[in-house]
């Protein structure tokens, strides 16, 4: 006969399990602890910004890169960009060449003779404002975040300059501001958006290759752009939830 354990009966076990589970549930409801694990999605009727870039329309003038630097006090010396333009050249032998001298601001010199070019096109680049952004997930202090309307922003007063996010961004869209030592990136000109103005890069684009809009509004230009074109996102295999849609995106672009 099995000896019954008086100290630890089945009833006792269920009782204790219940108390612990209840306690954990109660603790998780306590409001001061809530912020740290807030995964609240904004309401579905709120604005949720997306961006469209039309490679067929881009002529590589880099007005966007210039305007972005002027509007947002991005350092003028090379290698610091929130927005830039790359020229892709695919030769007849299948070689892919990418050039972006000073983000396109210095103009392009084509090293490949025209007879050897299979195809060539410009790709304007900027922050993808991902909905599952890798950069905001790695921030140890909560200094970068996705705003309620889907714009990835930085809080320069809270950033400690650890550079995790710079490495986490698969699109190379972040840099450390040399004067402040904090990270900086495209804000989709949040200060302009909120006052009803277009971002500076979109305002100055001479061919209308750039647009943005509310992805949740089926009547917005942005949704129409996605519907009417064969759009693609950069590095979809990384599951970043990129909200930057390119028209006529070639396989070679990365």
């Amino acid at each position: 006969m099995v000896k019954e354990n008086k100290d630890f009966s089945r009833r006792e076990f269920f009782k204790k399990t219940g108390v612990i589970a209840g306690g954990v549930l109660f603790a998780s409801l306590l409001s001061p602890l809530k912020a740290a694990q807030s995964t609240e999605k904004s309401k579905s009727d709120d604005t949720w910004y997306g961006i469209g870039l039309d490679i067929e329309k881009c002529i590589g003038c880099a007005s966007c890169a210039r305007a972005c630097k002027a509007e947002n006090d991005v350092p003028k010396e090379p290698f610091f960009f929130r927005s830039w333009v790359e020229q892709y050249t695919i030769t007849n032998s299948g070689e892919v060449k990418v050039q972006s001298p000073n983000g396109g601001i210095d103009g392009y010199k084509q090293p490949v003779p025209e007879s050897e070019i299979f195809k060539t096109f410009f790709v304007p680049k900027m922050c993808n404002h991902c909905s599952k952004s890798p950069c905001t997930q790695v921030c140890p202090v909560g200094a970068t975040f996705v705003s309620p309307d889907g714009v990835v922003l930085v809080d320069p007063n809270y950033c400690v300059g650890c550079r995790y996010c710079v490495q986490a961004c698969p699109y190379g869209c972040r840099y450390i501001k040399p004067d402040l030592g904090t990270v900086d990136k495209c804000t989709l000109c949040y200060h302009r958006l909120k006052k009803g103005m277009d971002p500076a890069c979109m305002m100055v684009c001479p061919t209308g290759a750039r647009l943005y809009g509310n992805l949740r509004d089926p009547k917005s230009e942005m949704v129409k752009f996605i519907k009417n074109h064969t759009v693609g996102a950069l590095k979809p295999n990384l599951n970043t939830g990129s909200k930057l849609y390119y028209n006529a995106l070639s396989q070679e672009v990365h």
Binding site: A35, E71, F145, L153, Y190, M197
Partner: peptide, 22 residues
């Protein structure tokens, strides 16, 4: 902090208040 998520809610306003040049 924590007003909208795991960040300073006031940062939204600070981003919004930057000067417009264009």
């Amino acid at each position: 902090f924590g007003e909208y998520g795991h960040y300073r809610g006031a940062a939204l306003k600070e981003n919004e208040d930057r000067p417009i040049k264009y």
